[in-house]
Design a protein around this nucleic acid. Structure first.
Length: 160
DNA sequence: GCCAACGTTGGC
DNA sequence: GCCAACGTTGGC
């Protein structure tokens, strides 16, 4: 699969996770994790086609109190077939997937940093410089979203 | 726990 | 290929 973007360009992302399931603390403890269980084609396509090692990630807690950006991570490995699609016992098992023709992919993500204070969704919505971010848009459910370099840097500079 | 918004499925 | 019905996400 050919990417629209050159492989050597560093890109920026926001990745959502429910902290009850897997939080920035868990990532810090584990150092790296496979971003398994994504079952949305748009999010899959980002991982499969556009995410490369060394891309930077805003680690976002959803369904949290409060929801918001909790940390930083980096993409440490390019996409591989999501092992859970082959695991009959997993809730992410997909009977249509085969080893020859996997359907779902996941990247590996590595811990980088934790925000001293979560940058909550409420606060994000009030920041004029970040008004283009997808995550603040109503009804935006995509669990992996592209972030502009400008927004990424602004957040790190002012809120980390 | 509610429900708006969105994605997916499947009948036609 | 349309679209109604259903399932899921995720803020609140």
């Amino acid at each position: 699969m050919q990417s629209n973007n050159p492989k050597n360009t560093q890109k920026f992302w926001l990745m959502k996770t429910e902290p009850d399931v897997f939080s920035i603390k868990d990532l810090k403890k584990n150092k790296t994790t496979l971003w398994e269980g994504v079952r949305n084609y748009q999010a899959r396509n980002f991982m499969m086609n556009d995410m490369n090692p060394n891309d930077q990630v805003l680690f976002y807690h959803s369904n949290a109190e409060p929801s918001g950006i909790a940390g930083l991570a980096t993409v440490s490995k390019a996409a591989i077939p999501d092992p859970l699609q082959f695991d009959k016992k997993s809730e992410y098992f997909d009977p249509k997937a085969t080893k020859e023709k996997p359907i779902w992919f996941c990247v590996e993500v590595k811990y980088k940093d934790t925000f001293k204070k979560n940058l909550s969704l409420n606060e994000l919505k009030t920041i004029k410089d970040l008004s283009d971010m997808l995550v603040i848009k109503k009804g935006q459910r995509l669990s992996i979203q592209p972030v502009s370099e400008k927004d990424f840097n602004f957040i790190c500079k002012n809120y980390l």
